[in-house]
Design a protein around this nucleic acid. Structure first.
Length: 228
DNA sequence: ATCTGATCATAC
DNA sequence: GTATGATCAGAT
């Protein structure tokens, strides 16, 4: 059972805000679902539940969650101090010439242009976790500059085939980490030495400290309002 | 305690 | 197989 898609951003945000303080278990039951005992074998459960509850498009389509609104949904687990417990995966990284696209045209930028952040509080039984206050966000000029600088460096290195050098320590707000069913999973790519090599797929992740900044709502000190 | 590398389920 | 949704678990 899936809610109807929201028709406007306001409607979407209103729905998300109305979930604040609610436990995931009852939300799931309202949709005819049962909360799993833990997330070890259901890592995407929280995100999928909120998609259903908010009327996201769903499916594995390479599109954002609310295509009509151009909004991407991200759930983020918070610790006791209200800080993200985890980094946030944005999308898979291209290992070929596609990674040489311009920032303006890249997929990561498109996905982050408008994000509905839904914090989830608590650890332990997923059904006992509680929805926090949702926040609709677009990168400020300053945030976008940070994202762009990292993205250009990281995808530049990918485009050069420097897979051995690249690891999760690169990037200030973005990082590249494995994104696959296992480390045995391989994808063909052209190395810096112009040889075909098999490399583990990777994804772009937002560092937890960057997401913390976004959620804190602290205005950028440049005083620039968010982009639309 | 935090970060990096590894991993799990599901849809198409 | 590749995309979606992420968290797990060992290293630092």
């Amino acid at each position: 059972m899936r809610a109807n898609p929201p028709r406007t951003e306001d409607e979407l945000l209103g729905r998300a805000l109305s979930l604040e303080g609610r436990r995931l278990g009852p939300i799931a039951e309202g949709l005819g679902l049962r909360a799993p005992a833990d997330l070890r074998r259901n890592k995407g459960w929280v995100g999928e539940l909120l998609e259903l509850a908010l009327g996201a498009a769903g499916g594995a389509a390479a599109a954002c969650d609310f295509p009509d609104l151009g909004v991407e949904l991200k759930t983020v687990p918070l610790d006791e101090r209200g800080r993200p417990r985890e980094s946030t995966c944005v999308c898979v990284a291209s290992l070929g010439p596609e990674s040489l696209a311009s920032w303006e045209d890249c997929w990561l930028r498109a996905k982050l242009a408008r994000v509905l952040w839904v914090p989830v509080l608590g650890r332990g039984a997923p059904g006992s976790r509680v929805v926090g206050r949702a926040r609709l966000w677009s990168p400020s000029v300053r945030e976008e500059a940070l994202l762009r600088a990292d993205w250009e460096e990281l995808s530049g290195q990918l485009g050069l085939g420097r897979f051995d050098e690249l690891d999760a320590r690169w990037g200030e707000v973005l990082q590249l980490r494995p994104k696959a069913a296992s480390s045995r999973e391989r994808r063909w790519a052209m190395s810096a030495e112009a040889e075909w090599v098999q490399v583990n797929p990777r994804g772009f992740y937002l560092r937890a400290r960057f997401v913390a900044r976004v959620l804190s709502g602290l205005a950028d000190l440049d005083g620039t309002p968010p982009n639309q």
